[in-house]
Design a protein around this nucleic acid. Structure first.
Lengths: 142, 142
DNA sequence: TTAAGTGCAAACGCTTTGCAGTTCA
DNA sequence: TGAACTGCAAAGCGTTTGCACTTAA
């Protein structure tokens, strides 16, 4: 078991849940990805590693990891499909190029500023900030 | 025809398109709403006014208005359903309370700051900024 | 007159669910 | 042992599409 997998096991144990084959497979696939993946991509990749794992289990695992705060779901892309990635606390926002379709992550203090601003001026306690910027990336605009 | 309806007619004419019954009905429903509506809510309301209007036409009208820049589609709420509202240029972002489900609009210069920041530092030309803050509103947090 | 637009019904993509069987603490 | 978990297949939801008919300009 990799060290990150035993972290997963610990996180699950705290909630009284088990580390199973499907969960581990989903975890490994997503955590070794450099980018976001759709549930479909995750399911395919998991299927390559272990063909006995069912799609439903992939969806159930992702939903669980989301609930535990281990992964993060976003609606990027033109389609309805959700995109998944590990929930890094320093992960800030996404920039999607509408021409080439690429999605960049961007780190900065913008999201924190939003959070602070709302807490101060509006009494709104933000638990999650989703910032998606759509436009043309450096390579695609004239 | 209301004045905003003739604006709609003009906007359509520029694109060589027609003002029809279904389009007008969708327009009136959405533009008289104080808040966002799901496509489903719009379709129901349109159906009350004119039961002969089909759901497909509602979806087609909304997609068209989006393309023309007249309306704006967002994924708020816990479900997959899209939410629609008129595209006000001064409309900035949404704050959704995960306890009571209410969605507030918030106006400020945050979105413009994001836009400027990206254009300067990253060569990213933003055409659209979606900022959704989820958390607890003033009434719901302790 | 005729391209633009519609209703209808069927299909679509993504995701969730009920259930009966399996597995891990 | 018993609750957690799974695979399977079917249904769910929101949305889109093909087609023949209708309508606005």
């Amino acid at each position: 078991m990799t060290s990150s997998a035993s972290d997963l096991k610990a996180a699950l144990a705290v909630a009284g849940l088990r580390l199973t084959g499907p969960r581990l497979a989903v975890w490994e696939v997503v955590s070794s990805a450099s980018d976001h993946m759709t549930a479909d991509e995750i399911a395919s990749e998991v299927g390559r590693v272990d063909p006995t794992v069912n799609r439903s289990s992939v969806y159930r695992s992702l939903a669980l990891f989301d609930e535990l705060g281990l992964m993060r779901q976003s609606s990027l892309g033109p389609t309805d499909a959700s995109h998944w990635e590990l929930a890094h606390p320093d992960e800030q926002f996404h920039m999607r190029c509408e021409s080439c379709g690429s999605v960049e992550h961007h780190t900065g203090d913008l999201v924190d500023r939003v959070r602070d601003h709302l807490a101060g001026d509006h009494g709104f306690q933000a638990t999650r900030v989703d910032l998606l910027v759509t436009g043309l990336c450096r390579n695609c605009h004239p």
